[in-house]
Amino acid sequence: MMEPKQPTVSAKPLSEMTPQERHERAIGVLKRLVADKHQAEEEMVENFHKDPAIQAAVAKLKEENERRGTPVVQL
């Protein structure tokens, strides 16, 4: 599973940034967070259908649920 690239943000420590630099960094991080989340959601659907490790894990979960007779557990 490929990890998304890290956002391009200044390598300068926050404590050394000007307020404007901090603002620009924060907005960049915010937009990156949202973009990464949307990308992750797309990859989750893709990987469900093509990642053998995920298919095996889901098959195992289905088998376990069938053996138990239900996917529900009492807490």
């Binding site: 599973m1 990890e3 992750a40 490790a53 995920i54 894990a57 195992k60 979960l61 376990e64 649920n65 138990r68 996917p71 529900v72 557990v73 009492q74 807490l75």
Partner: peptide
């Protein structure tokens, strides 16, 4: 109650 779940792990 809740659904049975499994932890697959991985980088995420």
């Amino acid at each position: 109650s809740s659904y049975n779940f499994n932890f697959v792990g991985g980088p995420r």
